[in-house]
Simulated scan of single mutants.
Amino acid sequence: MNKTWKLAAAAALWGTAVLAVPATAGSLDPSSVSARPAPMVVAQAGAAAPAAHAPGAPEAGHGPEGGESHGGFPPFKPANYASQLIWLIVSFGALYFLMSRVTLPRIGRILEERHDRIAKDLEEARLRQAESEAAHVAYEKALTEARGKANAIAGEARNRLTAETDANRKALEASLNTKLADAESRIAATKTSALSHVRGIAVDTTNAIVTTLVGAGAPQQDVEAAVDAALAAKSN
């Protein structure tokens, strides 16, 4: 890229230098050349006596070679227009050739490469965005499935614990009922046994009381009948 612009600048400078050459050469006007005296005539005039200056003749030091120029700026003279136009066309053609064949194609390739790179980056960004959206959807789906599985596992655990608790409660109630029934049976047996002993004790106590009060023992059957009647009345 820099080399191309250097070549274009060198071509422009070369064209400018070439344009300056015919302009300098054109400063020698044909009229001024024809106005110069011939060398031979000047030599003959030097051999003769110095003549007076003719009216209208150019004075010494005021001619074209005396330092004073006539005719204005050379590039503005009509006689130099043709060469200037030719070199302008040549320089413009060279510059156009360099620009069209070297610079502009490189710039076009650079712009095309940038366009392709930008399009590739945009396409890659779209792909990454699509992948990100797909990953987000998959994440949401996995999260929903995980929540469902967690709820199912929690429900199963809750149901299992409830079932186990019910089973343990029922087993404990059955065991307690069994133990309660055994206790009631033992209590009833103990009560029956105690009552039987109480009757015997009551009969013996009654015999002893009657013997103490009366001085003689009462019949055993009468004492037992009296004790049974008293126990029956107390239980009612």
Rank of each mutant, 00 (worst) to 15 (best):
V33C: 06
A38C: 02
N207W: 02
T144C: 02
A38L: 03
Q220P: 15
V42S: 15
L161D: 14
D29H: 10
I107Q: 12
A189V: 00
L127P: 00
Q44L: 09
D204Y: 00
A232E: 12
Q221K: 14
L180R: 11
E123K: 13
S132E: 12
P58N: 05
L88S: 10
P75Y: 03
A35S: 14
Q129S: 09
A12E: 04
W14M: 10
A94L: 15
E131N: 11
G217K: 10
E124D: 11
A35V: 02
S175Y: 06
T178E: 14
N151E: 13
A188C: 00
A183M: 07
A47I: 01
S69T: 10
P55Y: 07
W14Q: 00
N159L: 15
Q129V: 08
H136V: 03
D204M: 08
P50R: 14
A202H: 00
T16S: 10
L28M: 13
N159G: 10
G148N: 15
T165M: 06
A163T: 15
A20S: 11
P78V: 07
T178K: 13
G15W: 01
P219Y: 01
A167I: 04
E112I: 04
R160C: 02
D204V: 09
E164D: 14
L88A: 14
A35N: 09
I118A: 12
A48C: 06
A25P: 03
V102F: 10
A230K: 02
G72I: 04
L7D: 13
N168F: 09
G66R: 02
R106W: 02
G200Q: 11
A8K: 08
V102S: 08
R158G: 01
S175L: 05
T206S: 13
R114L: 08
R36Q: 15
R114C: 04
P39F: 11
W5N: 03
K191Q: 11
A20N: 04
L98S: 00
E173C: 05
A233W: 01
G67H: 04
H70A: 09
L85W: 05
M40L: 14
S31R: 14
K234T: 15
A8S: 05
V137R: 13
S132V: 01
S34H: 01
P64D: 11
A146Y: 04
A47C: 05
G217E: 13
R158M: 04
F73H: 06
H115E: 11
L88V: 09
Y81N: 06
H115R: 10
L104E: 04
G56K: 04
A154G: 01
L111K: 14
V33P: 06
T205E: 15
M99C: 01
A232Y: 02
M40E: 15
W5L: 15
L98H: 08
P37K: 07
S100I: 00
N177D: 07
K179M: 09
A60F: 03
S196Y: 00
A167E: 13
G61E: 00
A142Y: 05
S31Q: 11
A181I: 07
L19M: 13
M1K: 07
Y139D: 10
A134H: 03
A125C: 05
F73A: 05
R109M: 06
R147H: 07
L127G: 09
R109W: 04
T103Q: 12
S27W: 00
E156W: 02
S91T: 15
P78R: 08
V227K: 03
W14T: 09
P37D: 02
A11D: 02
L127M: 11
G61K: 03
L88K: 08
